[in-house]
């Protein structure tokens, strides 16, 4: 089964990356104390973690309905996006070489999964729970905003809108990858780029918590930027999607920090004014 092959390949590749990074970034001493710190952190952030799981599960269910709903009420903005940016993506693709295609294809699939999973594992092995809590909040925000936008807007990526100028480089070089990506999302959901917003979120948080794992910061920033570029280079996203994704990244990092602050102070997550109203 071709899909299973792809999943196994990606799983094995990402696992190798995770192990390597764990040794180099987290370091042997923290790995030794990991059982204890992970348990402690898990207790501390359990509610947020459950919330993320619920959001992801809902995402999977709503996505199917969302596609239908999107055609019913959504706005088809493909033409507007093209009017804004024209052939920017075609310009990015004009630098294409086989080596670059291999690299960006790799970071788009393997690098992306690694970038999202590693912070969860690494921050779970850190002595304090705050970085993990913020990451979880930020992921929730990303998926929430993404889902809402995907219902409100119908947009096809450049490879689907201007096939004469933009090549589907990923699917040309590795067609089986489309079996995986079409499981994860549908081709009308390109605005904003969730690849960019989540990678951006991880990179921003790596910078914010650079004291935690100093070696992780440059890796996350480099990978994050690579992934944002790869979405355009591979013809999957418009530059507009990437810009919107970057905005979502900034906003969700900010929102997540505040939510974590509140929770750590023991306050309710509801805005104070709302609480006053209730009282």
């Amino acid at each position: 089964m071709a899909l299973l092959d792809v999943v196994l390949q990606v799983g094995a590749g990402v696992f190798a990356l995770l192990v390597t990074a764990a040794v180099l970034v987290v370091g042997p001493s923290r790995l030794r104390t990991a059982p204890r710190t992970v348990r402690a952190n898990a207790r501390a952030v359990a509610p947020v973690f459950i919330a993320l799981v619920v959001v992801l599960a809902a995402n999977g269910v709503i996505r199917d309905i969302g596609v239908e709903l999107s055609w019913l009420i959504g706005l088809n903005i493909t033409g507007y996006i093209h009017a804004i940016e024209g052939s920017t993506v075609a310009f990015v693709q004009s630098f294409a070489t086989p080596a670059l295609t291999a690299y960006f294809g790799f970071v788009y699939i393997f690098g992306y999964v690694f970038l999202l999973v590693f912070p969860l594992a690494a921050y779970a092995m850190y002595e304090e729970s705050r970085p993990l809590r913020v990451v979880l909040f930020a992921y929730i925000t990303n998926y929430g905003v993404g889902l809402l936008c995907y219902i409100l807007f119908v947009a096809y990526g450049p490879r689907n809108f201007m096939p004469d100028m933009v090549q589907p480089l990923l699917y040309n070089s590795w067609p089986q990858a489309q079996l995986l990506t079409s499981q994860v999302n549908v081709n009308t959901n390109v605005f904003p780029s969730l690849h960019t917003s989540l990678s951006g979120t991880v990179a921003l948080l790596a910078w914010r918590f650079r004291g935690v794992y100093p070696r992780w910061t440059p890796v996350a920033v480099f990978l994050g930027v690579s992934i944002a570029v790869s979405t355009m280079y591979l013809g999957i996203h418009w530059a507009t999607d990437v810009a919107a994704g970057a905005l979502v990244a900034f906003a969700s990092v900010e929102a997540a920090s505040r939510a974590a602050d509140r929770q750590e102070r023991g306050e309710s997550l509801m805005p104070s004014r709302l609480r006053e109203l209730r009282e």
């Binding site: 071709a2 699917y171 067609p175 489309q178 079996l179 990506t181 079409s182 081709n187």
Partner: peptide, 13 residues
């Protein structure tokens, strides 16, 4: 499948 190229690849595989 997602596109014609992937369809061809399914047959090739």
């Amino acid at each position: 499948v997602g596109s014609d190229m992937t369809a061809v690849e399914m047959v090739a595989d």
